[in-house]
Nucleic acid binder design. Structure first.
Length: 801
DNA sequence: GCTTCGCATGGAA
DNA sequence: GTTCCATGCGAAG
């Protein structure tokens, strides 16, 4: 609400044009050693100060027109919607750059950023500016390798995956969601006939529609992230990409303000993720164009007292002036408070390459109270060409919070800047930042690192060594911590996106329907894959039940009249579904006819609707479940809201943790109330086998808990447990099946309480005992006293008698 | 003995 | 296998 689009647009951010033409002769030759501890206060660009000279002699700035063009281009280039647009005039610029490239002796300069420029030229020359949201959305996601791409494949591993992975975009946002299936050829694949595959895909009815043994394999957990993120991205970019709020939200999410090709060249950890608030703060009242260049998380060495900040090679060569001598050049850098610092930009020969460093950064780092793990950002102002150094504290709520509210160098930050700060907790980054904080704290818990930190803390300012980066700590610890830090950062990048839409993948799964177009069957390694050329679409949420006769159905609610209609299990409903769409039951193909069964009966069938229609409260719940599914994204969002609501402690919980309608877990496949055929004692079906395995686990655990209680009759040998099992299990349905799928029965014997008692009895008289079918081995530790065997075991332990 | 400088080393990408 | 880069370490001041 406080964001000002006007201001934001003034603070133009841009993908940095790689290395403007630097000239070593333009830089001050003052001995940095003499001045690096004396930051220049109130620096004004007198005759040819570094940055302005860069610009004045920059071949990019041969005319004011071009300068203006560059500003404009910079802004457009940065637009998320135009991230890959190429700009008129770039041809000339490239030509100049190339010329410069040839002129300068930079023997060790790799392809680096110059390639980026050429690449851009090749890709985008002549490409018209196109701000069409859909178009730009597609562009934003089309990060796949370009035919002319020179990017290093290594840049696409790990950290970059979430951003570079190809995704399937659905043209019509109202009918589907980009599920982000990461498959070649933009295809969606469904694995068939693989009993080991995790059935977390489409609802079971979908499987049945495609063959009785079908399973949906959703391979990587990344899908959750991608689906959520891509959904939101679509919201942002497809629907109102030009709106500043969306833009701002995108920025808060920390996506890099840079060209996709630049991303492919620069390691992701150096992508500038500067926010508009930061930019606004950096630019102050001027109308300068702020061009984020890169950022770097400070290592222990960087933040230590040595005063050397190692610069990423490609960043240094791309954005800092070229240097041919190891001594390098003094660089003036302005911090967010306007204070000028002079660093020595130089390099060390290293393995036939160079290692670029900024020397003399200690005072600046200390002034900013930075430590290892924090991030410094480098930007450039246009047309002044000043280098701006910002920072982001790793432990603070958000970067904009940090830079706009915390005094820098003692200088209070303007209220204007403060006014632009959004509520930290409302932004996705808040969560992420909390994660960072946790990470930092956890890392600091290392005694070695703590000791190191205290040892290093000898500076005038409180300069504690950063988390896990004590300068003198043993190598392995330190390296490991550094690695962890990087991995955390990568995780954060993923999480930033996954937090954009609070819906779990499992929840989303319930809404996914196969695309209408029939799949082709591909056999890979003996497994049949259904390969869809289109991603799944969002459908209406339905509930899959097995009625008292054992028939499988699904139930859906009419969007108009809210009546529930029984449908065949293979019915695939669109996101908006009404009785008139009920082609399966002509008698109830309009809103007129009453429901086939009462709400009470329906409540019996739909476990998640605990107390459905039975109480006022439950009615409220079912009303709440009548979500507006007019749009797929809305459906997801509404579902997310519902999911959050259901997670509230005050809400009645279903008896099965994370129980999902339509799932095929041991609990959910049970007929309600113990009805239906009973399994034989020798049954080896999945349910019975699971029950046996669970029982064995339970017994083993109990033995571990009571290892010294040798007199206890409950102590059993593992073999005995198995033995008992064979005596005890007479089939899952005989074993308290009624407890498993009927919430209404939750308070009676068949629930976990009884299971506890049963369990207890089992130890003394196994033959008579039953097994709790609610118990799921993978959910041992969940807190569900009524249905959780672990809770039962705890009760048993606490009340051994 | 301490600090700084410059390069070397080796883990990670 | 190569490159990057965090940091170790010896030499010099």
């Amino acid at each position: 609400g406080v964001d000002c689009s006007k201001c934001a647009r003034n603070t133009r951010a841009a993908m940095a044009p790689p290395n403007p033409v630097w000239s070593s002769a333009m830089h001050t030759t003052q001995n940095v050693a003499d001045r690096k501890d004396n930051p220049v206060k109130s620096w004004r660009p007198p005759a040819g100060q570094i940055s302005s000279q860069w610009r004045q002699t920059n071949l990019w700035s041969v005319s004011s027109i071009q300068s203006d063009l560059q500003q404009r281009l910079a802004y457009e280039f940065d637009r998320p919607s135009g991230s890959e647009k190429l700009l008129p005039g770039r041809t000339f610029i490239h030509a100049q750059e190339r010329k410069f490239d040839d002129m300068h002796d930079r023997p060790t300069t790799p392809a680096g950023m110059n390639q980026i420029m050429r690449e851009r030229d090749a890709n985008g020359h002549g490409q018209p500016t196109n701000l069409d949201p859909a178009y730009s959305y597609a562009l934003y996601h089309r990060d796949g390798p370009h035919p002319n791409s020179l990017h290093d494949p290594s840049h696409h591993g790990g950290e970059n995956d979430s951003l570079s992975s190809r995704k399937v975009a659905i043209p019509d946002a109202s009918t589907g969601v980009d599920a982000g299936f990461k498959l070649d050829s933009h295809h969606t694949a469904i694995l068939r006939d693989d009993p080991s595959s995790l059935s977390v895909g489409l609802p079971s009815n979908f499987a049945s529609s495609n063959g009785p043994k079908d399973h949906i394999r959703i391979a990587p957990s990344q899908q959750q992230t991608q689906m959520a993120s891509s959904s939101l991205q679509k919201q942002f970019y497809s629907h109102s990409v030009s709106g500043y709020n969306e833009f701002q939200a995108q920025l808060r999410n920390g996506r890099p303000r840079m060209d996709a090709k630049a991303r492919s060249q620069l390691l992701p950890r150096y992508w500038p993720r500067i926010t508009d608030q930061e930019l606004q703060h950096l630019s102050g009242d001027s109308n300068s164009v702020i061009t984020p260049l890169f950022e770097k998380m400070l290592s222990a060495s960087d933040a230590g007292r040595i005063g050397r900040l190692v610069l990423p090679k490609k960043c240094a060569e791309a954005y800092f002036p070229p240097i041919s001598q190891p001594e390098g050049l003094p660089l003036k850098v302005q911090d967010a408070s306007g204070k000028e610092w002079i660093f020595q930009f130089r390099f060390w020969p290293n393995n036939n390459s160079r290692m670029y460093v900024l020397e003399g950064v200690t005072p600046c780092i200390q002034s900013m109270q930075l430590q290892a793990g924090d991030t410094v950002t480098f930007s450039r102002t246009d047309p002044e060409g000043k280098l701006i150094m910002g920072f982001r504290k790793a432990t603070n709520l958000s970067s904009e919070q940090e830079e706009t509210t915390k005094p820098v160098n003692g200088a209070p930050i303007s209220s204007e800047a403060n006014g632009k700060v959004s509520a930290p907790d409302s932004s996705p980054n808040a969560v992420v930042s909390r994660q960072n904080k946790v990470n930092t704290e956890s890392k600091s818990s290392s005694p070695v690192e703590q000791a190191t930190a205290s040892k290093v803390d000898t500076g005038g300012l409180a300069q504690k060594e950063g988390p896990g980066t004590g300068q003198s700590s043993p190598g392995p610890v330190k390296r490991k911590a550094t690695s962890v830090s990087q991995k955390i950062k990568r995780l954060r990048m993923d999480n930033e996106e996954s937090m954009e839409l609070k819906i779990t993948w499992e929840e989303a799964q319930e809404l996914l329907r196969p695309p209408p177009k029939a799949p082709s069957i591909v056999v890979v390694d003996g497994h049949e894959f259904e390969e869809y050329e289109e991603p799944p679409i969002l459908g209406r949420k339905t509930y899959f039940v097995t009625d008292q006769s054992g028939a499988n159905n699904q139930w859906a609610q009419c969007e108009d009249c809210s009546k529930w209609r029984k449908l065949p299990v293979d019915a695939l409903l669109p996101s908006r579904w009404t009785c008139s769409d009920n082609k399966w039951d002509p008698e109830r193909s309009s809103c007129g006819p009453a429901q086939e069964i009462s709400m009470e009966e329906l409540a019996e069938l739909i476990p998640i609707k605990a107390g459905l229609g039975g109480t006022k409260k439950s009615k409220t719940r079912i009303e709440a479940d009548t979500i507006d599914a007019s749009d797929g994204l809305d459906t997801l969002a509404n579902l997310a809201i519902l999911g959050e609501g259901e997670a509230l402690p005050s809400q009645p919980t279903t008896r099965h943790p994370r129980h999902r309608p339509g799932c095929s877990c041991i609990v959910c496949i049970q007929p309600p109330s113990g009805k239906g055929p009973k399994h034989k004692q020798t049954c080896t079906c999945n349910v019975c086998m699971t029950v046996r395995r669970r029982f064995r686990t339970l017994m083993l655990r109990r033995e571990k808990r009571q290892p010294k209680d040798t007199d206890s009759p409950r102590k059993k040998e593992p073999g005995q447990a198995s033995e008992m099992l064979s005596q005890t299990v007479s089939g899952p349905l005989a074993a308290s099946a009624s407890a498993t799928s009927s919430p209404q029965k939750a308070n009676v014997n068949a629930d976990g309480t009884e299971d506890m008692a049963v369990d207890h009895k089992t130890t003394s008289s196994p033959v008579k005992n039953h097994i709790d079918l609610n118990i799921q081995p993978e959910r041992d530790d969940e807190q569900s006293p009524k249905s959780d065997a672990a809770g039962a075991a705890r009760l048993l332990r606490d009340n051994p008698t």
